[in-house]
């Protein structure tokens, strides 16, 4: 596996599918011109984030005609973008579509919807129910939408499925500005960015995969999204990072040889005891210790 990756840190307009589609097409064309083979957009990049009652008005099936210009371009570049999905049965999902070779290769439905603090996704969306890895021309990937990445099962299941990389689209609000959130070297730093970086680094290190984080920027009713999209390699090293508050593009190479070397050096997957997890879960359930 080796591919040239583009992370598009964009500022979608709330609820404006037409202008957001134009923005996606422009970013894809630029990525193509720059030689990228895979482009990742943030969570709900086609719709904006705090949709509330707009969710039902903007939700689309993955085969909607709106995707046509992107599907056409996906013959030359693989595209992962966020959208509100309307399933055949009428359920709505916070979804990510992976487009390749002119078709929708994979759709990930966000499993861990956030419904606390400023978030209310559980009210507007149904929850996805799997973490299915998929093979693309660019490698084997798993998608984790924002909160999916905070819970242990998603990254762990992708680790078991042997992915090369985890794609993490996000709409993470910028927050935490107190002095205690400042960087050790004295630089100004958002608490939200520090926490995300730790998480991304740790997950990359523990799963020995590339971790690609695409966060959006811009404001919706006074909530600002923090940007700082970044990429970590299978050793947990940062390969690149974008600034906090502006639209920006990150390009980096994902070389499968790095994952191979990391996994030889420390064979975490080889020594993983899945049987132990299975048996322990069964025992704990039998004993009523977990539900």
């Amino acid at each position: 596996m080796h591919t040239t990756l583009r992370v598009a840190q964009i500022n979608p307009a709330l609820g404006d599918l037409a202008s957001n589609l134009d923005l996606h097409v422009a970013e894809v064309d630029q990525a193509l011109a720059d030689g990228a083979e895979l482009i990742l957009f943030p969570e709900l990049s086609l719709t904006g984030y705090f949709l509330k009652d707009q969710t039902a008005e903007l939700a689309l099936p993955p085969d909607a005609p709106l995707f046509a210009p992107l599907l056409e371009r996906s013959k030359s570049i693989s595209i992962a973008l966020g959208f509100a999905e309307r399933a055949r049965d009428g359920r709505l999902y916070n979804a990510v579509a992976f487009l390749e070779d002119g078709r929708v290769l994979h759709v990930h439905r966000k499993v861990h919807l956030v419904s606390y603090g400023m978030f209310d996704e559980g009210r507007d969306f149904g929850a996805g129910a799997n973490f299915a890895a998929f093979d693309s021309r660019r490698g084997r990937f798993g998608i984790l939408t924002c909160e999916d990445f905070w819970h242990l099962p998603g990254p762990y299941l992708y680790f078991l499925q042997g992915v090369d990389g985890m794609l993490v689209p996000s709409a993470s609000p910028a927050r935490g500005v107190t002095e205690r959130d400042r960087d050790e070297d004295g630089a100004a730093r958002l608490r939200s960015a520090t926490v995300w970086s730790r998480l991304l680094e740790a997950r990359a290190l523990l799963t020995q995969t590339f971790v690609v984080y695409a966060n959006r920027v811009g404001w919706e009713d006074g909530i600002g999204f923090g940007g700082q999209s970044c990429v970590f390699d299978p050793f947990g090293r940062e390969l690149g990072r974008l600034p906090a508050l502006e639209s920006a593009r990150l390009t980096t190479r994902l070389e499968g040889s790095l994952a191979r070397r990391a996994r030889v050096q420390t064979p975490l997957r080889r020594d993983e005891k899945v049987w132990l997890l299975r048996e322990e879960l069964a025992r704990l359930e039998r004993e009523g210790a977990i539900s």
């Binding site: 500005v177 205690r180 100004a188 730093r189 811009g218 404001w219 006074g222 600002g224 508050l245």
Partner: peptide
């Protein structure tokens, strides 16, 4: 608990004002 990183707050609020 109350002290903020003033340069960060300035950057956020200027960006907020421009966009909103």
């Amino acid at each position: 608990m109350l002290d903020v990183q003033v340069e960060l707050v300035q950057q956020l609020l200027v960006d907020f004002l421009r966009e909103e």
